[in-house]
């Protein structure tokens, strides 16, 4: 009993530093942002206005478009990316594979690239007379060039392609690290029992990697709900507001337009609420013990 108690105290010591830092540098500003969300005004002249910012939010067509767009990205992009990342990590975990280091590095590198270079290159590749269109035209996949940056539908596709390109290798790293903790003997046993690679994947790899799948699922969801870099730098939210995200709208309200930090804070808490909902769903699906 005593030992248990002392262990519990040691446990608190382990988490102490981390908790202090997060409280100071995240929760303290977060509480201030929350208070701010009940105020309104330009720049430094703020008045308390109660719930008006939140009411305004539900009548703001641009905010609603941004929320819609963000959901579209979330629904399509997160599953595609996570499956791809898992797929590559399993391929790369094959002990007999040659040039492993090269393939691993190549697939990871997109997440290292500077945002400036990445956005310029994507805009260039996907311009109307760009290489991607030329390639598709030559292969007769399409009969006329796709207006990637000007068409509401294709602009969203472009954003999804861009995020997937950039972040698949990043998520792959977590799986690769996780796969090292899976005992190879399990696979050997499965092979003897006649399980094919697909069965091995679904009956061994996926269950073993569950904690990591949950981790990448939640962090990618958070990343997508806060998506900013790609629409800001590749499409500028356009055409019109068709690729605008919630985070980008927050940025516009704070820095692009006459600053209204109170309203921007209110929009931010929409992201918090949405993220909490999705995280709870994923923890439930992930079968976390109570």
């Amino acid at each position: 009993m005593n030992l248990r108690k002392s262990k519990s105290i040691i446990g608190w010591v382990f988490i102490l530093i981390a908790t202090i830092f997060i409280t100071l540098f995240y929760f303290y500003p977060m509480i201030q942002a929350f208070i701010l969300s009940f105020k309104s005004g330009m720049g430094a002249n703020l008045q308390f206005i109660g719930l008006d910012n939140y009411i305004r939010l539900f009548n703001d067509p641009v905010a609603l478009i941004a929320i819609r767009n963000t959901f579209i990205y979330l629904i399509f992009q997160v599953p595609i990316m996570i499956l791809l990342a898992m797929f590559f990590s399993v391929l790369l975990n094959n002990p007999k594979l040659k040039f492993k280091g090269f393939f691993r590095t190549a697939i990871f590198l997109p997440s290292v690239i500077s945002l400036v270079a990445y956005s310029v290159i994507f805009k260039y590749l996907f311009s109307t007379d760009g290489l991607v269109n030329q390639f598709l035209l030559n292969l007769s996949f399409i009969s006329e060039p796709i207006e990637w940056l000007m068409d509401p539908f294709w602009a969203k596709v472009l954003i999804i392609i861009a995020i997937t390109w950039r972040w698949t290798g990043y998520n792959m790293i977590f799986y690769l690290a996780g796969l090292q903790n899976v005992d190879n003997s399990v696979y050997e046993a499965a092979k003897i029992d006649g399980a094919n690679p697909i069965q091995q994947f679904f009956y061994i790899t996926v269950p073993m990697l569950k904690p990591i799948i949950l981790f990448t699922g939640i962090t990618s969801t958070i990343g997508t709900l806060q998506l900013f870099d790609e629409p800001m730098n590749i499409t500028k939210g356009g055409p019109g507001n068709e690729t605008l995200t919630i985070s980008q709208y927050i940025y516009n309200l704070s820095f692009e337009y006459t600053p209204d930090f109170g309203y921007a804070a209110a929009v931010s808490f929409i992201i918090v609420v949405l993220t909490v909902i999705f995280a709870v769903i994923q923890f439930r699906l992930g079968g976390e013990r109570k």
Binding site: M30, A33, L36, I250, Y251, S254, S268, I271, V272, A279
Partner: peptide
């Protein structure tokens, strides 16, 4: 703490 966009925390 990771669910709020950083842009909202910047000023505080």
């Amino acid at each position: 703490s990771m669910m709020i966009p950083f842009a909202a925390l910047m000023v505080p």
